[in-house]
Amino acid sequence: MELSRRDALAALSAAGVGSIAGCAAPTATGPDGGESAGGGRASETASVVGDHELETLVAVAEVVYPSAVSGVDDFVRTYTGGRVDGAGDYAAGVADAVAVLDDYATELYGGEYATRSREDRADALDYMSVDAVDPDPDGTDAQRVRHYVVNELLYALYTSPTGASLAGLENPPGHPGGTESYRTGPE
């Protein structure tokens, strides 16, 4: 199932960045100063969430998202672009969590997280116990990775119509999908 830009914008709405929807496409910026994330604090966000961080988020998404979805790269970049523009603390938290992942992967495999194979990336999350900890933005390394990276990505996917539809819910909580679908039966 293809994730669309609309899905990313819908997820942004659920993530408290409602004003993004309907505006110019939010795109995260690269270290060389590309297009900014919806305007706003482009230079500020560029310094903490750049191409490397986005690449790492996509690399994590490929592990935690089901194989049934496609378009992950664009979805994650659009969502994250709007998100880092929406909150400075969030951007710093993401950058910190990515650094944690990189340190861990480097120690374990001798290379940054995004450079590793899918199997290594899944194992790294497993070895860190990211699957077993409660999310906490101020917690341990694993808890921060769970909060800022894994749960952020899962929240984006499963509050979007396409993501939740994988389980049969096309209007998930957090998504303003109207008042028609609750009346209709399953396909």
Binding site: V63, P66, A68, L125, D131, L154, Y155, Y158
Partner: peptide, 9 residues
């Protein structure tokens, strides 16, 4: 999803 101890498929 947000409280699960599994990922992916």
């Amino acid at each position: 999803a947000l409280t699960a101890d599994s990922f992916g498929d």
